[in-house]
Amino acid sequence: MMRGLAVLARSGLWFGGALILLSAVLIGIDVFLRKVFVVSIGGADELAGYALAIGTVWALGATLLDRGHIRIDSLYMLLPAPIRIVLDFVGLILLVGFFALVFWHGLGVFEQSWVSHSRSQSALETPLVIPQAIWLIGLAMFLLVGAALFVAALGRVVRGDRAGVAGLIGTRSAAEDVAEEVRAAERRR
């Protein structure tokens, strides 16, 4: 199950990255047209805003699986393993819980947009349910990944696999970061 979610999350990461890249290209073209021909692509900033919001949430799941979310670990590494595991679970619960609240409130905004047929206040007049739905799907994917990660980590706790828990939800160590960079450099050769 985790492999399937990892593939889904990695696909979401690529989708989000492609959206952000396309928005950067669109803004570059718009800036060029404004400077050279004194014309503008109407709505480029609006589309870029949607791309940034959607791209960000679609990347959250892959970042969670890669243990790439930022945590302050100054004291963390000095604590005994059982306390670190508890803190890892607390951190995961708080992160996923926060985004569950964002998702819940986002559903309310989506529902209001749907009922009132809301459109953006730009020349594009984008029906807001379209970017909101894509954004909510990305958030739902993140919540699914977070819940599955919690269950998998809990299973490892029950089996007594502390190293496995740390590998799933713990803070990445400097040694792990260095090893990852070395592997990436070797793949580029």
Results as ranks from 00 to 15, higher is better:
1 M>R: 06
2 M>E: 10
3 R>V: 11
3 R>P: 02
5 L>S: 09
6 A>Q: 10
7 V>L: 11
10 R>S: 05
12 G>S: 04
14 W>A: 03
14 W>M: 02
16 G>W: 07
20 I>H: 06
20 I>K: 04
20 I>M: 14
20 I>C: 08
22 L>S: 11
22 L>H: 00
24 A>K: 01
25 V>R: 00
26 L>M: 08
27 I>G: 02
28 G>M: 09
29 I>V: 13
30 D>P: 05
32 F>D: 00
35 K>F: 13
39 V>R: 01
39 V>D: 01
46 E>N: 09
47 L>T: 02
49 G>V: 13
53 A>D: 10
55 G>T: 03
56 T>F: 15
56 T>I: 15
56 T>R: 05
59 A>M: 08
59 A>T: 08
61 G>Y: 06
61 G>T: 07
62 A>E: 10
64 L>N: 03
66 D>Q: 14
66 D>I: 05
67 R>H: 14
68 G>V: 02
69 H>F: 13
69 H>E: 11
75 L>P: 02
82 P>L: 04
83 I>S: 07
85 I>W: 04
86 V>P: 00
94 L>R: 06
94 L>M: 12
94 L>F: 12
95 L>I: 06
96 V>N: 04
97 G>R: 15
97 G>W: 15
102 V>Y: 12
103 F>Q: 09
112 Q>C: 00
115 V>M: 03
116 S>L: 11
124 L>P: 00
125 E>H: 00
125 E>C: 00
130 I>F: 10
132 Q>L: 09
133 A>W: 06
133 A>F: 13
134 I>R: 04
135 W>R: 07
135 W>M: 04
136 L>S: 08
140 A>H: 14
142 F>K: 10
142 F>T: 07
143 L>M: 14
144 L>H: 13
145 V>K: 12
145 V>P: 05
146 G>K: 15
147 A>M: 12
148 A>E: 12
151 V>I: 15
154 L>S: 11
159 R>I: 06
160 G>F: 03
161 D>G: 04
169 I>F: 05
169 I>N: 05
170 G>F: 08
170 G>N: 09
171 T>N: 05
171 T>F: 07
173 S>C: 06
174 A>Q: 14
177 D>L: 09
178 V>D: 14
185 A>H: 13
189 R>K: 14
